[in-house]
Structure formats: structure tokens, C-alpha cells
Nucleic acid binder design. Structure first.
Length: 255
DNA sequence: AAAAAATTCAACCGCTTTCTT
DNA sequence: GAAGAAAGCGGTTGAATTTTT
């Protein structure tokens, strides 16, 4: 339903405050036509001028979004192809939810489209994965961390440690998200695919065989979830082009 | 055939970043 | 360099559509 929002005021040439109602909701063909004409004449950008120059009762933000996501002539219509899907997966593995970055590698596709595609096609599967394989990954990671810590401890003079007050641990990055034999990005994507297509098989293939050692590990990890609940997501520092995978706290893994 | 549930996706919102003055 | 405007981004919403019961 299209609704009229009277949310903004502009000064008129007579010095009155003229109330302008920005239209919201789905665009009509007439509105599209006006916006296309505007871009033909003035080019992309200066979206806040659209209303003034065309009479369109849409704010600049809405105009930009409509153009970028729907009216741009170079947009590709139709279903995401399997090839595109694979690219999305690969780039998502690398960049996380940086949809606009991913979209730059898919000509004719918008960030919004890719984001929606990811949500609708992978959300459920990812949730299942997070329920199953994530437990495995967390366990593997914890195991590795524990082993690293053990090695570290062996190198340190125990007596010195005992005499020092407990220091807070530095935040540790989770560099291992996939089973240890899966190293490069391509393998990660393949692994991811295989889990999507056949979750149980792939997981069981990578699951270490049950042993006394594993039972002990299970007991250990169940004692205390030392690193808290963390998830398989990619977080990143926007100033850094290299996303880092790390333990997280509360956000859903894949919304 | 109808109702309920699930899915899709265009559009909005709030925040951040970049540009302009 | 500061301030305001504009653009860009990711998360979320909700109406329309499709699928399931």
C-alpha cells in the first residue's frame, strides 16, 4: 500500500514553510518514467534535486535506491545462475556480508539482490549447518587452541606464571573455521557446497573418529564454554581489506 | 477450494562514509 | 580543519505471491 508521509518541510520562494509529502511504497510507472527522464537529462547523482526538477514526490534516497536497484539499464534480469551463485559463495566466504563489494564482481546484479538471494537461498541451510557442523568447528577450534596453549605453557617457566597475577587473555582470532585439512578459500567453498548438498555426509567425513581422546575432549569442552558462544561469521574492520574470522558473541550467524 | 504457512523481494530505516563548501 | 549535505551500506520490514496443508 502506498502511503503518504508528510514528513518534511521546505521553504517556499514566498518565505512560507511549504509542507511536502514524500511518497513512499511501491513506485508507479509514471514515477519510474520521471526518474528515467531525469537521469537521461542530468545523469546519476544529485538525487535530492529530482523532486525539485521533476515534480516527483520522492526523496533523494528513495530515487537513488529505485534507480540503482531497479531502473538502471545495465541491470541483469532473471534468476541468479549457478555460476553467479558460486561466485556469491566464494566472495561471501572471503568478504562476509559486504554485499556491495560482492556485487561489484557480478555485473548487472545489485547488492540488494545478492543480499536477498543469500538470505532466501542459504539462510535455512546455514542455520542447519550452524546447528551441526558449527559444533564440530567450534570443537576443532577449541581443541587447536587448547593444544597451542599447552605448547605455549611448555615453553614458559611455570614457577614464574604461578607468581604472577592472572592477566586477561588477549582476544584471539579464530583462524580455523574449516576442518584442518581444508586450507584454501576454494576448498572452503567446496566444503561449504558439499555441506549444503549433503550435510551429514560431509560432516561425518570431517568428523574425527570417535575415540577415548574425543570423549575426553567432549568432557573438557562441556565443562566450560571457555570462549563463550561464538559463531561462524566474518567480521571485519572496515579500514582493513582483510576480513578476520573471530569468535563472536550475540548476533545470529547468518540472519 | 480455502486457509495457513512459507517465501520472495522491493523498499525503508538508521548509521557510516565520502564529498563539498 | 569543521560542518553540513549527499551518497552508500547493511539490516530489516511487510505486502504480494507461492506453496503446503
Amino acid at each position: 500500500m502506498v502511503c503518504e508521509i508528510f514528513s518534511e518541510q521546505i521553504g517556499s520562494s514566498w518565505g512560507f514553510i511549504e509542507e511536502v509529502g514524500w511518497r513512499k511504497g511501491p513506485w508507479t510507472t509514471d514515477e519510474d518514467r520521471l526518474l528515467i527522464e531525469y537521469v537521461k537529462l542530468h545523469g546519476e547523482g544529485r538525487w535530492n534535486s529530482v523532486a525539485r526538477l521533476t515534480g516527483l514526490r520522492r526523496n533523494g534516497k528513495s530515487c537513488r535506491l529505485r534507480w540503482v536497484n531497479y531502473l538502471r539499464p545495465d541491470l541483469k534480469r532473471g534468476q541468479i545462475t549457478p555460476h553467479e551463485e558460486r561466485i556469491i559463495l566464494e566472495l561471501h566466504a572471503r568478504w562476509g556480508n559486504r554485499w556491495s563489494t560482492i556485487a561489484r564482481s557480478l555485473p548487472g546484479r545489485t547488492d540488494n539482490e545478492i543480499k536477498n538471494y543469500w538470505r532466501t537461498h542459504f539462510k535455512k541451510k546455514i542455520k542447519n549447518l550452524s546447528d551441526n557442523s558449527e559444533k564440530l568447528r567450534v570443537r576443532l577450534w577449541k581443541k587447536q587452541q587448547f593444544q597451542q596453549q599447552q605448547q605455549l605453557n611448555n615453553q614458559i617457566n611455570i614457577k614464574n606464571i604461578m607468581s604472577l597475577p592472572t592477566m586477561p587473555q588477549p582476544k584471539q582470532e579464530m583462524t580455523i573455521l574449516y576442518p584442518n585439512n581444508i586450507i584454501d578459500q576454494q576448498e572452503q567453498v567446496d566444503f561449504f557446497y558439499s555441506m549444503l548438498n549433503n550435510n551429514s555426509t560431509s560432516v561425518s567425513q570431517s568428523e574425527p573418529s570417535s575415540s577415548n581422546e574425543d570423549i575426553i575432549w567432549d568432557d573438557l569442552w562441556n565443562l566450560d564454554d571457555f570462549y563463550g558462544h561464538f559463531i561462524n561469521t566474518t567480521t571485519y574492520d572496515k579500514t582493513n581489506t582483510t576480513p578476520c574470522l573471530q569468535p563472536m558473541v550475540t548476533t545470529p550467524a547468518f540472519y
